[in-house]
Each structure stands twice: as C-alpha cells, then as structure tokens.
C-alpha cells in the first residue's frame, strides 16, 4: 500500500474542518477547566469547611475515573434529567470538568506557595477576603503555575479524539468516516497524526516560552 498524495489532498479540507472543531473543543474546554478549577481551588482554601470538603471529594472522584466514562455519563444522563446539550457542548463540558479537577490541584500548589505572612499583612490592612484573593494572593499564586497549566492544555488537546465516541465531528471522527467511505485509512489517519504532532509541537514551544517568562517561583519579600 503506497501513500496516495492526490487522495490525501482531496480529503484535507474535510479533515481541516474537523481540526477546527478539535481546536474549538480544546480552547473552550480549557476556559471551563481554568475557571472552574480556580473556583474549586479558592473554595477549598477559603470557603466553608463543608463546601471545601465536598469539592475535595469531587476532585478525587473526577481524577479517579476515566474521561471516557465521564463523557458517556454526561452524554446519556444529561438528556434524561432534562439538560439537552449538543454532542460538542457535552464534550466541552466533560473535558472542562475533567481537567478542572487537575487544574484545581495545580492552583492549590500555587496558593500554598503564598506565605501566611502575606495573608496576615492583607488582613492587618483591612482587606476583605475577596480583596485579599484578588490583590495579594492570586497575583502571586498564578504566574508560577502557568507552565503547569499549559501542560494540561496540551494533554486536553490530545484527549479530544475521545469526543468521537459521542459522535462529535472532531478530526478523528472525520478521518474514520472518510476512511470507511473509501476503504483507505492510511491517508486520513496519517494526516490526523501529523496535525496533532504539529499542533502539539507548537504548543510545547509556547509552554517553553511561558516557563521562561513565569517559571521562577514567586518569592515573598
């Protein structure tokens, strides 16, 4: 079997359309993961005890079960409780929640890196809890963890093909359908692999840049 360049060129536009969906799912999933993860980390540290505990259990649960099962769960159970989301939206939600659990742990490490003296200085000046988070703690906690969060962005990107399991027309799903129609899988799957490789390499480059920019841990003065 030889690689058919003409065929590859012919299916490329369809695959690129799938890639756009993949990138979309990753980007939106990451927005969900970053915000929900931060909210969970803050609640764990500063919220009421029972809520912090619940969030901790939830994080543990999410991290201990496979993403694929979480995907199926949301895909089949949400409609039953009256929540009608498109497959793509369901996929974004699942990716977001799954990676939020990991991001929350990363944020937590950053928050723990801010010394108790910073909290006390803020309190002694009369800052409210919200002002303390916004003005004192997060500006110190976030920059050092940006590279680690970037790594999860890449990991999430590589997990998006799982969305094909719930019929999302992301790039792998398009490749499988194309292959099934023409009985040729070499070209579509090779192209998909190359696409992931190229974007992952670009992202890795970005993360190295972030590490150079933010990599040093913030120290207290």
């Amino acid at each position: 079997m030889t690689f058919d360049w003409a065929y590859a060129a012919a299916i490329l536009p369809a695959l690129l359309e799938g890639l756009v969906i993949t990138v979309q799912a990753t980007a939106l999933g990451m927005v969900v993961a970053l915000t929900l993860g931060l909210a969970m980390a803050v609640v764990r540290q500063g919220g009421p005890r029972w809520l912090g505990w619940s969030v901790g259990q939830f994080i543990e649960f999410v991290r201990s079960t496979p993403l694929l099962i979480q995907l199926y769960f949301l895909f089949y159970v949400l409609p039953e409780i009256g929540v009608a989301l498109s497959p793509l939206a369901t996929g974004i939600l699942a990716l977001g929640v799954h990676y939020a659990a990991y991001c929350a742990e990363v944020y937590r490490a950053g928050i723990n890196g801010v010394s108790r003296g910073q909290w006390e200085a803020a309190a002694s000046l009369g800052f409210s809890p919200w002002q303390t988070w916004r003005r004192v703690v997060l500006p110190q906690a976030l920059p050092p963890v940006i590279p680690a969060l970037g790594n999860y962005l890449v990991a999430m990107f590589k997990d998006t093909p799982l969305l094909s399991a719930i019929t999302v027309m992301e790039v792998l799903q398009v490749a499988k359908i194309t292959g099934a129609e023409s009985f040729r899988y070499l070209e579509p799957l090779t192209l998909v692999g190359v696409m992931f490789l190229a974007l992952s390499l670009a992202a890795a480059q970005l993360i190295r840049g972030l590490e150079r920019r933010f990599g040093r841990l913030g120290r207290a003065a």
């Binding site: 010394s115 910073q118 006390e120 000046l125 110190q140 003065a221």
Partner: peptide, 12 residues
C-alpha cells in the same frame, strides 16, 4: 496597624 518581623511586603 501591624508591622511584622519579616516585613511581609507584597512582592508583586
């Protein structure tokens, strides 16, 4: 108002 042994200035 309080001044601490280890300053606790906001480094950022």
């Amino acid at each position: 108002g309080m001044v601490f042994q280890h300053f606790n200035l906001f480094p950022h």
